[in-house]
Design a binder for these strands. Sequence first.
DNA 1: TATGAATGAGCATTCATTCAT
DNA 2: AATGAATGAATGCTCATTCAT
Lengths: 200, 200, 200, 200
Amino acid sequence: MAIIVDKEEKRRLIALSCKGLLLENGIKNITVAQIAKAANIGKGTIYEYFANKDEIVFEIIMLFVEQIQDDLLIAINNNNTLSCREKMEYFMMLVFSEAYKKEFSIYKEFLSIALCSATPDTVAFRVNCHNSFEVILETIINQGIENDELHQNAIAMIPMIRYFHTGLIVDVSIGRVNAHMEIGSFINSIFGNIIYGENR
Amino acid sequence: MAIIVDKEEKRRLIALSCKGLLLENGIKNITVAQIAKAANIGKGTIYEYFANKDEIVFEIIMLFVEQIQDDLLIAINNNNTLSCREKMEYFMMLVFSEAYKKEFSIYKEFLSIALCSATPDTVAFRVNCHNSFEVILETIINQGIENDELHQNAIAMIPMIRYFHTGLIVDVSIGRVNAHMEIGSFINSIFGNIIYGENR
Amino acid sequence: MAIIVDKEEKRRLIALSCKGLLLENGIKNITVAQIAKAANIGKGTIYEYFANKDEIVFEIIMLFVEQIQDDLLIAINNNNTLSCREKMEYFMMLVFSEAYKKEFSIYKEFLSIALCSATPDTVAFRVNCHNSFEVILETIINQGIENDELHQNAIAMIPMIRYFHTGLIVDVSIGRVNAHMEIGSFINSIFGNIIYGENR
Amino acid sequence: MAIIVDKEEKRRLIALSCKGLLLENGIKNITVAQIAKAANIGKGTIYEYFANKDEIVFEIIMLFVEQIQDDLLIAINNNNTLSCREKMEYFMMLVFSEAYKKEFSIYKEFLSIALCSATPDTVAFRVNCHNSFEVILETIINQGIENDELHQNAIAMIPMIRYFHTGLIVDVSIGRVNAHMEIGSFINSIFGNIIYGENR
DNA sequence: TATGAATGAGCATTCATTCAT
DNA sequence: AATGAATGAATGCTCATTCAT
């Protein structure tokens, strides 16, 4: 009896074989030939599982981003000695750390691609990223509320934090911005009860 | 004697002729042949004024972004009846408005390109963008401080607002985010004296 | 299963299809598009078998020069009624004959290219040419020694004969030199026991 | 009264300004723009004195080769302590010496160009080169005859020596030939009264 | 006479995708 | 199901030459 291969499973396997390739070359410079070689299959076979190159690239990126998110989640959950504030700082800094240099550049490439080609798939994936990100933030903030580090209404900050974080990623990539300092100020303004509006 | 041309001036002129082209096709799909045609000059002439294609594209983008910033500045200064809060909202919403749809997409493309190729020129330009943006914000916030709409320390918010705004641009481009709503919440949290940190 | 092609064999076939093309246009004016058309394959296919245009051109030239050498060898071996002196004359004259006009011009182009771009491949090939040339000369000279037409030490002349011949090719190409006459004199000086140095 | 410039004189002057340029870049990579800059005149002006680029290049090359020949002549005449044999060796070796490395490569380029484009001008120039070369050789050989180093008939060797020398230049450029050794053997065979033909 | 701005034909090379086997 | 040979459209850039001033 012939082996029936689960297409979705095979897509994953192909994508998985390319992680190293992506880290070495970046998304932009990858070719289908390289992917086929890395996955140890024929070029034609790729097209049995993916409609076009973009689909493959996307599958690999998804794998990556999910990986980063898992890392974040694990890192946060495994550090129960940290305060909410510390966790949030840790959480926001992780992608800027030296250890994540290559992953960071892949993430930037994802942003770059996604910015200009908002297909239903990219959108869905990006929404999914948001959610994962927010779940983690929620966990952290909830702990903060329990610890009396934060008010109940801090949950409402989540989208804003996300925008801040994304914007920071972009500006760190482009300009001469010091991520650590900016995150420090930001967290300070949250936890420091700084009031900007005049109380009238 | 042959005509002596002001190179910098000519660069501008060439770039200017291509604004429409860029709006139609987007940055990614533009070719040197198209640029030459749009500027009504020969392909070779392009290379008398620009070292390579990237330089031309960059010049055109600069023109665009500067235009947007000028529009912002004028819009803010010409609306003296608006409160600080209204101005800030207006300021943050402008790029998302229907009238700026095409310019918005050019700006996204700039971000997309800059994210993955941080040349000294892109960095310098991006830093310059920051500054212009911050100058406008400062004007708005200073007015708010004078009006007693904002505390003195509100000036410190500027970088954060910028990151928030950039992040929002990215997420609006990629995901299903409602810019108007998010900006509303954000401004609310600034002007509403919402305290997130527990007062201990 | 897809067809597996012998790359080396295919290189030869492609080169072979271009012999006529080269003879018509000369090496300098050939384009990859022409080569592809002559070989009746796609332009991209060329690059499956050759790293760049130079490699293709080189392969075609090799084909030509090998052909000339084979012709020489055959001509020499098939004319056993000729004396050593006659054979040597025949050998040196062949490339200048009307029948080899086009091949001669290809050889000149090879010299022209090789003169200014001594890659390892050109060098190896040229060394190989030397050797073939010398093998033929050796055969001829050995026969002369057996026939008592030449001294034993005549073998030592081989490199000098080769330089003479190459130099003559260059000068015939460039100046108004009569190959037949020059070869005649040269052979005369060899077989005529002419002594140039004073016997002291 | 306007200055009437002798066209031929101006051609020379332009060519002269480019000697350094040629030595740096080689003939192949030179552009008209570079020539104009080096000569400190406009690009258009070049075409007042030369019909096309080839003509300019040719003028520069002529200058060079003449220079080399002058050097040779001077070197030979200024070394009156040398024997005829030593002079001939010196004469043949000069172009291969380290001091003439760049000039040698220019000469190779000349050969390369001339091999494939035998215009009346190139031919005339090449013939002229022959003559200069032969004049020098004649001087050397005549001295040898006076010194009893050589027979009267040695004069007849001149063309052969020239072919040998040209061939050697080509082979040194292309293959792995040791000029010094080959010249040594050649001179030895001339001055050593080696007889190749059997005395019957 | 001198200029230098403008030109555009010309060309090697890449790579996603197809399809015969 | 798997393959990999074949493809050809698509594009940035150079540079000799012209010609208006």
